[in-house]
Design a protein around this nucleic acid. Structure first.
Lengths: 102, 102
DNA sequence: TTATCATATCAAATAATTTTGATATATGCA
DNA sequence: TGCATATATCAAAATTATTTGATATGATAA
């Protein structure tokens, strides 16, 4: 069941919106990274590096995004890869269109 | 210039989302109202009546919605009529589609 | 003008969210 | 097993958002 208010809230935090943009564009950064590059998504520590955030802060925001259904998690060994759930975004957009007769 | 984070925040508050729904469906309620019924929109005091909110609270939320560009205000005498700005919503939806490649 | 009504604004109180540092859990490897 | 690494969780602090009651502004009408 789609909750447009919850999805709006997830998108309403600037750093979370930036993380979403990072996920859609895939991570590409030079130098050593904690997890091996993957086409499966972007890992926690890559997000830390990209935005200079500490680990618990990244973890918190990824949980918010995941619980809103905007991001899916894929554990791989000790890492976790995140990717966009575009279906939720599509449903959200559709719902706004219906609710507000766009 | 469209600010998707700001629009998301405006939509992320439950009572604001309900007010938006009220605006799109137009107000229709029995009994005495403070302002005369209008096709131009819904007035502050009608929103107070609909949700049992005090005046300053309604005023605060209408300001949030207006500043996000989601609602337009139309002063009429001592009243003010609010209506949805569907253009902003359409632009928001378009922007999400582009940002996240939907 | 004065009284009344609708809305706006303000400061203080309350509530919700976010950030941080510490610690816990879980996996992989020597 | 024991150690290192990646992520999760927790409690406290910091920040931001919302609510409230009081007062201000601005328009109407007597």
């Amino acid at each position: 069941m789609l909750e447009p208010v919850k999805i709006s809230k997830a998108l309403s935090e600037p750093i979370r919106y930036k993380i979403m943009l990072l996920l859609v564009n895939q991570y590409s950064r030079e130098g050593p990274q904690c997890c091996s590059s993957s086409t499966e998504g972007v890992c926690n520590c890559e997000i830390m590096a990209e935005f200079g955030m500490i680990q618990s802060r990244v973890s918190y925001h990824m949980k918010e995004l995941t619980e809103a259904g905007l991001v899916t998690e894929k554990p791989f060994g000790k890492w976790k890869y995140y990717s966009l759930n575009t279906e939720t975004l599509k449903d959200y957009v559709t719902r706004l269109g219906m609710d507000f007769k766009l």
